[in-house]
Amino acid sequence: MATEATHGAETAEHGAEAGGLVFHPMDQFIVKPLFGHGEVGMFTITNVTLWMAIAILVIVGLMVFGTRRRAVIPSRSQSVAELAYGFIHKMVEDVTGKEGLVYFPYIMTLFMFIVVANFLGLIPMSFTTTSHFAVTVVLALCVFLGVTILGFVKNGPSFLSMFWVSSAPLALRPVLAIIEIISYFVRPVSHSIRLAGNVMAGHAVIKVFAGFAGLAVISPLSVVAITAIYGLEVMVAFVQAYVFTILTCVYLKDALHPHH
């Protein structure tokens, strides 16, 4: 809350409203230019650029430099890279079958970006790119549009039979079709909000506890709570990347095998 020191009386007044405590849990999500204080245009180099670039560097470091020796007996970094590869490769194969492995690089790209961005966001003072709906919605829309187009390309109009539950009684089928269609179009919404919501909520909660640390009496408790939530967030960072990826696989499976 170093911010507040610079704001003088007005902030003190503002803080007084909260009983001496100052909470700005959402400030960590502000997008701002790295150089100067101008408008944030489309091509402005911002903290988003910085942390996405760091994510790229981490991924390249792990997946390219980590595996540069191509050792049969892997080094530590190569083990981690192989672990990530094996994890997603097996997931794609298990969920979508052998024919889904063509799309493995795309799914691997999504997973690596999300998991690295989530963990980078856990570094204090960092900016979490995956906490923004703008980012996760683009990811989810890529999946949604890609899967839908792929479904029609692979199956033609029979892709629509996915919505026509042939195992249900005939009278129920139109009702089920409506439900299926609605749920199909809700997919990108839930897909994106789940990720950004989880990440954002955890980070905001940590900031709220950090705000309570301003009271000397509560601060030990506050520190303990931050530690606990941080541990939870480490788990969430991985689990949400995993969930996003496996849902992508499930949607891909629907596109490849639309018939129930």
Binding site: V40, M42, V48, M52, A55, V64, T109
Partner: peptide, 17 residues
Amino acid sequence: NQVFWLVITLVVIFFVL
């Protein structure tokens, strides 16, 4: 801004991978 940099990032990661 976010969408622009995200797309660049994804393309770079995809090609590297």
